[in-house]
Design a protein around this nucleic acid. Structure first.
Length: 622
RNA sequence: GGCGGCGUAGCUCAGCUGGUUAGAGCACCGGAAUCAUAAUCCGGGUGUCCGGGGUUCGAGUCCCUGCGCCGCUACCA
C-alpha cells in the first residue's frame, strides 16, 4: 500500500493561533483526507515547538514553570484544530520524553560521526531571535536586543554537506517546491555555507534539551524542533513504523522557514545518515487585502470569528479555493462572500435543494431506481468519471485550487443537465424518464460530495446523509435507489450582502500605514547637524565614500553610498544631517559610526544640507 | 547593484515543448425558464496578450531591449 506522510511545521507555543497557522493545518488536513480517500496509508503530523528562550521568559514573567506554561498554552492550538475538524494522526510536543530521547540520540550520532566540534565564538546575538546574527543582519535593523557575546559553543559541520545538498536538490526536482523557492535555495547555496551553532550554554538558557555529551549545554531550538518529524513516526522506538512512513512525502511550510527546512534539516539528516524527505513545499502568505497582516495594523484575520459566523466548511473551502499554492493570496470579506454565495450556495447547495425537492414532489420522497441512459445522462456519467481522474491528478501535483474548480465545473454541468432535461416537466408526461434524470443528478451530486469531502467534511456529509450514501466511495454508481430521502437543512444559506456591511466590516480597522512609530520611538533617533571635514572613496567600492565629519567638536567617520552622486571634493564643507546614535557597523571592511540623510527617488539623490551660516555642527534636530 | 520571477478581458487568473477566429470563473447587460436558497440556463467582449525591435511560413508562447511590480541577495542606510 502506498504511504503518505505529511507534516505541518510545529507551531511556537507562545503564538496566538492565527489564519496562517490555520491555513497550513487545514491544507495538510485536506491533502491527507484526499490521500486517505484514495486508499493510501496516511500519517498526518502537527504539533508544538515548546523550547527556547521566549518560552522561558514568558513563563518567568507569569511565575510558572516553563512546562506548566506550555501545558496551559497548548490547548489554544488543540482546541482550534478541533473546531476546524483537523484529523491529525499525531500531535507532537517537543517537551515530550519520546522527543527528547530522539534529539539526544541524533545529537550523539552526529557527534560520533565527527560532525560536531567545539569552538570559542564571539559574535552578535539577537535575544529576540535567539540566535547569533551576522553584522550585516544586525545592521539591517530587523533584529532587536542585540548583544555582543563571547562563549564556547558546539558547532555542526553543515559546511561539509554543502555540495551533497546542492547535488541532491539538482537530482531531485521535486525536493523543494515550488520551483522558484528551489532556485532561491540554490542561490543561497552558491555562497560558502557556514557551520551551524547548535548549543546554548545553560547559564544563558536552560529551557531546552541537554546535549548528551556536555551537560552544561542545551541544544539550539531549531536543531531540536526539526527532529520532531522523525520522532513522531517512531525513529529509534518503532522501527517498522519508521520504515513505513519515513521519508516524509511533504513537509508543508510557510515561505518564511524555507532555509531551516531546506538547508539545516537535510544536512542534519545527511550527517545522521538518514534518508531526506521527498518534498518540502513552501506556501505563500495570506494578505489582508493588499497589505501584509500585522498586529500593529489590526488587520489579522481571526479564524475563530469567521467560523463562528459562517461555519467551518465555508472557511476551509475559501482558504483552499482562493490560494494558489506557493503564491501569496489576498483575504477579503468581499471575495469570501462571493465564493460562498456563487460556488457553495448557488451552485452546490441549491442543486441539492432542487433534486431533493423534486424527489419529494414527484417520487414520494424516494430516490428513483434507474440511471438515465439517454445521451445527456451518459454524458454526465462520463464527465463524472473524468472529473475523478482529473481532480486526483491535480491534488497529487499540489494544485488544490484547480482541483476544487474542476469539481465545481462538474457541479455546474449538472445544473445545466437539469435545465436541459427539465425533470419537473417530464414528471407530468414521462415519469419514468424524470426518475432516471433525478437518479443521475443525485448520483452526480453524491459523487461531488465525495470529491469535496476532504475540503468540507461536514456539509458534504449532509448531502451523503440525505441520499443514505454515507459509506459510498469515489466511483460512479454508488447511489442506491428506492430508499427514502432524509430531510436536510438548507446546505449553505446565502449570505445577505446588505446585512454583512453592518455586522462584519472588520478587516481593515485602522487606516494607519504599516510603519507608524510612536513619538517615543522617534525620540530615540538622534539627528544632528554635522560638518563634512574630509571625504574619500572607499577602495574597491564603486558607491561608497568615507566621510570624516565634525559633530559639535566630536570627530566621526561615516561610510555612505553616495559616490555615484557626489564627488569627495564637493562634499567637504557641507553641513549635513546625520543619525548620531546609530549602531556602528562595518561596511566593506571600514567602520561607520552613523549615517547621513539624503532624499532619493529612482536614480536621483540629494543630500539633506543645512545653511551652515546659521547653524553650527552638533545641533540636535527635532 | 546582482540573480530569479511576473506583467493576458472591469476583477482573479488558465494558456505544456511556437500553429486554426486567445480562454475560465466572478462582475456587468439582455433573454428563457419557474423544480430550487431572488437560486438555474442561454446569449453578449473593437482584450494594443506592458511598450519597442528581432527570429520564423507563423509568437501571448522563443531572442534582445525599455518600463512597471514582486522575491531572494548585496558595497542599501
Amino acid at each position: 500500500m502506498n504511504t503518505f506522510y505529511l507534516t505541518t511545521p510545529i507551531y511556537y507555543v507562545n503564538d496566538k493561533p492565527h489564519i496562517g497557522h490555520a491555513y497550513t493545518t487545514i491544507l495538510a488536513d485536506v491533502l491527507t483526507r484526499f490521500h486517505r480517500n484514495e486508499g493510501e496509508d496516511v500519517f498526518f503530523l502537527t504539533g508544538l515547538d515548546e523550547h527556547g528562550q521566549k518560552v522561558q521568559q514568558a513563563a518567568e514573567k507569569r511565575n510558572v514553570a516553563p512546562k506548566d506554561h506550555c501545558d496551559e498554552m497548548a490547548p489554544r492550538f488543540i482546541e482550534l484544530w478541533d473546531k476546524l475538524h483537523i484529523k491529525n494522526d499525531d500531535f507532537i510536543r517537543t517537551t515530550e520524553k519520546r522527543h527528547v530521547t530522539v534529539v539526544q540520540k541524533i545529537l550523539q550520532e552526529v557527534f560520533d560521526n565527527g560532525d560536531i566540534y567545539e569552538d570559542e565564538y564571539e559574535g552578535l546575538y539577537s535575544v529576540s531571535e535567539e540566535r547569533f546574527i551576522t553584522e550585516k543582519e544586525a545592521e539591517s535593523g530587523e533584529f532587536r536586543d542585540i548583544k555582543k557575546i563571547k562563549e564556547k559553543n558546539y558547532f555542526f559541520k553543515m559546511s561539509q554537506y554543502q555540495q551533497p545538498l546542492i547535488d541532491h536538490i539538482n537530482n531531485n526536482p521535486g525536493f523543494i517546491q515550488p520551483e522558484h523557492r528551489k532556485n532561491e535555495v540554490l542561490g543561497f547555496l552558491k555562497k560558502p555555507l557556514g557551520d551551524l551553532c547548535i548549543s546554548r550554554p545553560k547559564s544563558r538558557l536552560n529551557w531546552g534539551i541537554e546535549l548528551p555529551f556536555d551537560s552544561d549545554y542545551v541544544t539550539y531550538v531549531w536543531f531540536d524542533a526539526l527532529i520532531n518529524y522523525i520522532t513522531a513516526v517512531g525513529f529509534d522506538s518503532d522501527e517498522s513504523k519508521f520504515n513505513n512512513y519515513w521519508p516524509a512525502n511533504y513537509h508543508l511550510i510557510g515561505k518564511d522557514i524555507l532555509t531551516t527546512h531546506s538547508v539545516y534539516w537535510p544536512t542534519m539528516l545527511m550527517s545522521a545518515k538518514l534518508p531526506l524527505p521527498q518534498g518540502i513545499f513552501a506556501h505563500g502568505w495570506w494578505l489582508s487585502g493588499e497589505s501584509k497582516m500585522s498586529k500593529s495594523l489590526g488587520n489579522v484575520v481571526d479564524p475563530l470569528g469567521l467560523i463562528e459566523e459562517y461555519g467551518v466548511d465555508p472557511v476551509r473551502y475559501y482558504l483552499m479555493r482562493e490560494m494558489v499554492l506557493g503564491q501569496d493570496a489576498s483575504f477579503t470579506m468581499e471575495s469570501f462572500v462571493k465564493r460562498y454565495n456563487s460556488d457553495l450556495a448557488n451552485d452546490f447547495g441549491n442543486l441539492l435543494s432542487r433534486v431533493s425537492n423534486l424527489m419529494k414532489k414527484f417520487f414520494d420522497g424516494k430516490i428513483p431506481t434507474e440511471e438515465d441512459d439517454s445521451d445527456e445522462g451518459i454524458a454526465i456519467k462520463e464527465k463524472g468519471i473524468k472529473t475523478i481522474e482529473i481532480m486526483w491528478a491535480q491534488i497529487e501535483s499540489m494544485r488544490v485550487n484547480e482541483a476544487i474548480e474542476t469539481t465545481l465545473q462538474f457541479v455546474r454541468s449538472v445544473n445545466k443537465y437539469m435545465e436541459t432535461m427539465a425533470p419537473w416537466k417530464l414528471a407530468k408526461s414521462d415519469p419514468e424518464s424524470a426518475g432516471k434524470v433525478l437518479f443521475t443528478a443525485a448520483e452526480a451530486l453524491r459523487l461531488s460530495a465525495v470529491l469535496l469531502a476532504p475540503v468540507m467534511p461536514n456539509r458534504t456529509k449532509v448531502v451523503l446523509d440525505t441520499f443514505n450514501a454515507e459509506e459510498t466511495g469515489l466511483e460512479w454508481g454508488g447511489l442506491k435507489g428506492g430508499v427514502a430521502l432524509k430531510p436536510h437543512d438548507v446546505l449553505f444559506p446565502r449570505i445577505d450582502i446588505k446585512k454583512l456591511s453592518q455586522s462584519v466590516e472588520p478587516v481593515q480597522k485602522k487606516a494607519e500605514p504599516d510603519n507608524v512609530i510612536t513619538f517615543d520611538e522617534f525620540q530615540n533617533v538622534e539627528l544632528k547637524t554635522a560638518m563634512v571635514l574630509e571625504a574619500e572613496k572607499v577602495d574597491g567600492a564603486d558607491k561608497l565614500l568615507t566621510l570624516q565629519v565634525d559633530i559639535g567638536g566630536e570627530k566621526r567617520q561615516i561610510i555612505s553610498g553616495i559616490a555615484l552622486h557626489y564627488t569627495p571634493e564637493e562634499l567637504v564643507g557641507k553641513m549635513i544631517v546625520v543619525v548620531a546614535n546609530l549602531k556602528p557597523a562595518t561596511i566593506f571592511g571600514v567602520e561607520s559610526h552613523g549615517m547621513l540623510l539624503a532624499a532619493s527617488k529612482g536614480k536621483n539623490l540629494t543630500l539633506i544640507t543645512i545653511d551652515s551660516d546659521k547653524v553650527a555642527s552638533g545641533m540636535r534636530i527635532h
